[in-house]
């Protein structure tokens, strides 16, 4: 039985795991519609930017990281050096360092390979839904099993929907004429992703500076303007952050 292989042989533990897993799926369900659209767009954008269908499939299945994928596409298309693509990937993914640092207390007791597996499946949606739930409804100490399987429920939902929609986009994208300007959908998707992140003085200042510097340095060789823009943005954001902190203290 696949059920037994998935959830284990002891009936009461299997039941608890299955319930927690289903609970995770239920919680993630409403977010899956948006995720489907986002995956579809990413799939189309990958083949429209010049990746072959196999490369696009490989990227989707291996990375499972929409914003990093979308961010890398214009760089790959513009023949940027690989290290610039990797640096961009790292910067766009830096939020996962923060997310998984937040998840660590809940998964501390698990063996290393499982912690790594849960980390691999961590995305914006799974982090947001799980931690917000766990901080508002703290489970008793013995609830770690429920937490893990609840998290797995969320992640299995996001992973399957992401891959199915990406694959659909990859195969649909090839049939859509380039003149439709679908590459602009990827920019709009990034826009929708970044706007909720830009909240609070430091981030607003940093993003403004990063945007302006990116435009001014757009002609720089090797797409280095992007690197300079990000560094300038972070520096300004940190400066504003420190400034606001000091003003707070003086009040």
């Amino acid at each position: 039985m696949t059920g037994r292989r998935l959830f284990g042989h002891q009936p009461h533990i299997a039941q608890a795991r299955r319930d927690a897993w289903l609970d995770g799926l239920r919680v993630v369900a409403p977010a899956l519609i948006a995720l489907f659209a986002w995956g579809l767009v990413t799939g189309v954008a990958m083949v429209k930017s010049g990746l072959t269908q196999w490369q696009a499939l490989g990227m989707s299945l291996l990375l499972f990281a929409g914003s990093a994928q979308l961010a890398a596409l214009p760089l790959i298309a513009a023949d940027a050096p690989i290290w610039v693509v990797l640096l961009t990937t790292a910067v766009v993914n830096l939020r996962f360092v923060i997310f998984t640092a937040g998840l660590y207390p809940y998964f501390r007791h698990l063996p290393l390979p499982r912690r790594m597996l849960l980390g691999y499946f961590t995305g914006d949606v799974s982090f947001a839904l799980s931690v917000s739930r766990w901080t508002t409804q703290p489970l008793p100490e013995h609830g770690s099993r429920e937490r893990t399987w609840f998290y797995l429920g969320i992640c299995s939902g996001t992973w399957v929907v992401w891959q199915v929609s990406s694959v659909a986009g990859i195969f649909l994208g090839g049939g859509i004429p380039g003149t439709w300007g679908l590459d602009f959908v990827a920019i709009l998707a990034l826009l929708a992703l970044v706007l909720p992140m830009i909240a609070g003085g430091p981030t607003i200042a940093g993003a403004l500076v990063a945007g302006v510097v990116a435009v001014l340095a757009a002609g720089a060789p090797l797409k280095l303007g992007l690197v300079v823009a990000v560094l300038a943005g972070i520096s300004v954001a940190m400066a504003v952050d420190i400034l606001l902190e000091r003003m707070d203290r003086h009040r």
Partner: peptide
């Protein structure tokens, strides 16, 4: 242990990176 300052810097990075990617596409 991530110092708070580093955590803040990391929190600003994605917004800056994505804005830097989008801005030239829209403004030039």
């Amino acid at each position: 242990p991530l110092p708070e300052r580093v955590q803040h810097a990391l929190r600003f990075a994605p917004a800056c990176a994505l804005t830097a990617l989008i801005a030239p596409e829209l403004l030039t």
